[in-house]
């Protein structure tokens, strides 16, 4: 960890200004010299490991008074970016109308972390790739563009099988993002020139040739809220992992269905633990719509969801696992009592 200036801001414009001060160069937001601090559960870790080296840390927690509301008005959901994971997971309305959101939060991290971590920070959580997090490994294109990728032929059991490139196979580690991308959420972004909204699916960028650029956020921009239209009571988040709690997904699935008279009128399938970014399996969804659920359908959907997956030495098992998780999540969503 390097010494840094701590700055606490009390309104959004001061936050944007403090963050924008440091973005004169063209670094991606993760490399900007000023970094926003919310729950701190990723940033402080990475600073201690010397992976992130901000000169200024802008504490945006005072913005919680305006940016942490949980709102279910008019059949739509609006979640403030500074809402704590634990508060959202415990909200009975969200549990009833968006079980996929409540469960993706509840099954993430530990109670202590969920009490600290915010929704905005959570979706921007950085990869757990050990070669990225340990600066003594020289080859990491995400940390040091052009240096190579130690994970490609290294110990890559936790790494991605979807959305990978020859430059990076680091897994996007979060759970909540899979629920958001499945439900076609919108991200509200506050920046220098005001507020803009983008589909959640456009927030993260796959690694391609520039794994150091992880999102489409411009330097100095902050996520201020997420919105979801409609309600999704028939939705599940299923997470397979090595231990029962406090562990990242080896494979997870966020599934939301709208079933009318036994026919699936709308279906959403997103995958976690398998891809470099939050991953929507649209081709798989197309197979479901207008169908009646049965296990054979679930199997076809699962196969389609993982169709493009590429395994490597230690993570190839994730392809078969991913299929079983998708099939099981579909089964759970189709048969759940609502």
């Amino acid at each position: 960890m390097r010494s840094f200036t701590y700055q606490r801001v009390t309104d959004p414009s001061a936050a944007i200004q403090a963050l924008a001060m440091a973005v004169a160069n063209n670094n991606p937001p993760t490399e900007a010299t000023a970094q926003p601090l919310a729950g701190g559960t990723t940033l402080i870790d990475l600073m201690k490991l010397d992976v992130m080296r901000p000169r200024t840390v802008v504490d945006i927690n005072p913005l919680a008074s305006t940016w942490s509301a949980i709102n279910l008005d008019g059949g739509n959901l609006r979640l403030g970016a500074l809402a704590r994971m634990s508060d959202v997971a415990a909200n009975p309305e969200i549990q009833r109308n968006y079980p996929v959101i409540a469960d993706s939060l509840r099954l993430a991290a530990s109670p202590q972390l969920r009490n600290m971590a915010t929704l905005g920070g959570n979706v921007l959580q950085r990869t757990r790739c050990t070669y990225f997090r340990d600066i003594s490994y020289a080859n990491c294109n995400k940390r040091d563009p052009g240096s190579g990728c130690a994970a490609l032929d290294g110990f890559n059991r936790m790494h991605a099988v979807l959305g990978t490139s020859e430059q990076c196979i680091a897994t996007y580690p979060g759970d909540f993002a899979q629920a958001l991308i499945a439900l076609d959420a919108t991200v509200e972004i506050t920046g220098k020139s005001g507020v803009r909204n983008i589909p959640f699916a456009q927030l993260h960028k796959p690694p391609d040739d520039s794994p150091q650029i992880e999102t489409t956020l411009a330097p100095g921009e902050l996520i201020s809220a997420f919105t979801v239209s409609g309600r999704w009571p028939r939705s599940v988040y299923l997470k397979a992992r090595d231990r029962q709690s406090y562990e990242f997904a080896l494979s997870s699935a966020a599934v939301a269905l709208d079933v009318q008279d036994g026919v699936i009128s709308d279906a959403r399938v997103a995958l976690g633990g398998l891809a470099t970014v939050p991953w929507r399996a649209r081709e798989a969804e197309a197979l479901i719509k207008g169908q009646k659920f049965d296990e054979a359908l679930a199997q076809r959907v699962a196969d389609a969801a993982l169709a493009g997956a590429q395994g490597r030495r230690h993570n190839a098992f994730k392809i078969a696992l991913g299929k079983r998780v998708v099939a099981r999540a579909l089964h759970q969503a189709a048969t759940m009592e609502i």
Binding site: T130, R243, Q244, E247
Partner: peptide, 15 residues
């Protein structure tokens, strides 16, 4: 490679 307690897994209470 996994020389930390996030990646060297030990049981948690739920296990």
């Amino acid at each position: 490679v996994n020389d930390n307690l996030a990646d060297y897994l030990l049981p948690v209470n739920a296990d």
